[in-house]
């Protein structure tokens, strides 16, 4: 059954979830007084170019164990909120100093550095609040919800994404590009898979497999992104001002592509134990191929 997933229509699965996620995110951040902060939060969270890969992976992991996607949506949205919060802070002038994000001005370029910091500071707690207030009671035991909160907090925290950002800014020959990428890009993907599993009722062993799967896919996705970006930079010039942890830049495109193939095999292997769930594992398997092949555009045309 494992090869059957190639016939799975990931595009339809993914895009139909995107519209539901966008709708829920839109409702989760209504504009109130003081309007500026809500507008700044909405600017980043509701960016139409956002692929929503993190929330979709959370929902797919929850559904793998027969969990209802209704149980997963609030956490899926929360993952997107904390993800945007950390991207807003990563883009700041004394961080990666990115004027643009997804082809349009970054948050601080529009709202100012002070608002951008506060928008991030508001999105982190909103994410936690969204999970505990909106997960339908009865679908998920409260102890599991607390594990989800703690999992997300750890992923964005001082040993997770914040550590990744710090190591990226202080990149030296000694720090390994793989380690930086695991922290900066693997953590959230890992967290997303694990949270989905927690919400869907996965066993501790299954959660460990999801942990390794998620981490591997997150790094894989970034390694391929680095290759695409490197090629674009070669063609157009320019590129990021700060942050050096590009696998393609450090090891070259060929080695990066070899690495990607290695990670593709590893990620799929982590799913071996889930064969018993039949076609419910297809979305997670298809993500792995998508991460490498980018066979379609999720948003835009």
């Amino acid at each position: 059954t494992m090869s059957m997933h190639t016939k799975f229509d990931l595009y339809t699965y993914w895009t139909s979830l995107i519209s539901e996620i966008n709708l829920q995110l839109d409702q989760a951040i209504p504009v109130k007084y003081p309007e500026q902060i809500y507008e700044s939060m909405r600017y980043s969270v509701l960016a139409t170019e956002a692929k929503r890969a993190t929330p979709v992976m959370c929902i797919a992991s929850c559904e793998l164990f027969g969990g209802s996607r209704l149980a997963a949506f609030p956490t899926a949205c929360a993952l997107e909120m904390v993800h945007e919060a950390s991207l807003i802070h990563d883009d700041l002038p004394y961080m990666d100093d990115d004027l643009f994000r997804r082809g349009r001005l970054s948050n601080h370029s529009v709202y100012g550095v002070d608002m951008a910091i506060l928008a991030g500071d508001a999105l982190f707690p909103l994410g936690f609040q969204h999970i505990v207030s909106n997960t339908p009671p009865g679908l998920v035991p409260e102890t599991r919800l607390l594990r989800v909160v703690s999992e997300i907090a750890r992923a964005v925290g001082s040993t997770g994404m914040a550590a990744g950002q710090f190591l990226d800014l202080n990149y030296s020959e000694e720090s390994s590009v793989e380690f930086v990428q695991e922290k900066k890009f693997g953590e959230l993907s890992e967290c997303s898979a694990v949270c989905g599993g927690l919400l869907g009722g996965a066993t501790d062993n299954e959660l460990e497999s999801l942990r390794r799967y998620g981490r591997t896919v997150g790094v894989l996705y970034q390694v391929v992104n680095d290759v695409l970006e490197f090629k674009r930079e070669q063609a157009e010039g320019g590129g990021k001002k700060k942050g050096n942890s590009s696998f393609a830049k450090v090891f070259g495109v060929e080695k990066a592509l070899e690495k990607a193939e290695e990670l593709r095999v590893k990620a799929k292997k982590e799913l071996d134990g889930f064969e018993k769930y039949g076609e419910k594992v297809f979305p997670l398997l298809s993500f792995v191929d998508y991460a490498v092949d980018r066979s379609f555009d999720v948003v835009g045309d």
Binding site: S86, I117, A153, V156, G157
Partner: peptide, 11 residues
Amino acid sequence: AVLAGDALLAF
């Protein structure tokens, strides 16, 4: 300072 703040918030 920004990252330490974010990390304290999450923690």
